[in-house]
Amino acid sequence: MILDQDGNISIITQEKATIIELVKKIQDVYSKLKHDNIIVNLTSLNKLSVQDIIEFLELSNSHRASKQSFVIVSNSIDINDTPDEIIVVPTLQEAYDIIEMEEMERDLGI
């Protein structure tokens, strides 16, 4: 797992771990990330299933409940097949755009 900071955004890039291992690693360091927006970059994975995305659901729900953004980046899954409760976008730029929109909505109290 590679962890980068960009202002108030933590970008987690998957390297060699399985999805389950990656989720566990994120949970282990979550106390350091809980006040940041989180982008999980899975673009290095050629095959990704809906079940892989669902592994992040609990983490995403709890993070979003604390008024922070949680976005997964993957271009190897049909976004229409993923649960509505989790945000999956095909590019890193779209992840930044989602976070920017959600921050504006939070600022406006929406």
Rank of each mutant, 00 (worst) to 15 (best):
M1S: 10
M1K: 09
I2A: 04
I2F: 09
L3M: 03
D4M: 03
D6E: 12
D6C: 07
G7N: 15
N8S: 15
I9W: 01
S10F: 05
I11H: 05
I11R: 09
I12Y: 03
I12D: 01
I12P: 05
T13Q: 06
T13W: 00
Q14D: 09
E15R: 06
E15K: 04
K16H: 11
A17V: 13
A17M: 15
T18S: 14
I20D: 11
E21A: 15
L22N: 08
V23G: 03
K25Y: 06
I26L: 12
Q27S: 11
D28I: 00
V29Q: 12
Y30I: 01
S31M: 11
D36R: 13
I39G: 02
V40Q: 01
N41T: 01
L42T: 01
T43H: 00
S44N: 11
S44W: 00
S44V: 11
L45Y: 07
L45H: 09
N46M: 00
K47W: 06
K47M: 08
S49L: 12
S49Q: 13
V50S: 07
Q51N: 13
Q51A: 12
D52L: 03
D52F: 06
D52T: 00
I53C: 00
I54S: 07
I54P: 03
E55Y: 06
E55F: 05
F56C: 08
L57G: 00
S60H: 07
S66E: 10
K67W: 03
K67T: 04
F70V: 07
F70N: 10
V71R: 04
V71K: 06
S74F: 07
D78N: 14
D78F: 09
I79Q: 10
I79G: 13
D84Y: 13
D84S: 14
E85F: 12
I86E: 07
I87W: 05
V88L: 03
V89E: 03
T91N: 12
L92V: 11
Q93P: 08
Q93L: 08
E94H: 01
E94N: 10
A95P: 02
A95D: 06
A95F: 02
Y96Q: 03
D97N: 05
D97K: 10
D97M: 04
D97Q: 06
I98S: 05
I99R: 04
E100K: 05
E100A: 04
E102F: 14
E103S: 02
E103H: 05
M104D: 14
E105I: 14
E105D: 15
E105W: 14
E105R: 15
D107F: 14
D107N: 15
L108V: 10
G109F: 11
I110M: 11
I110Q: 05
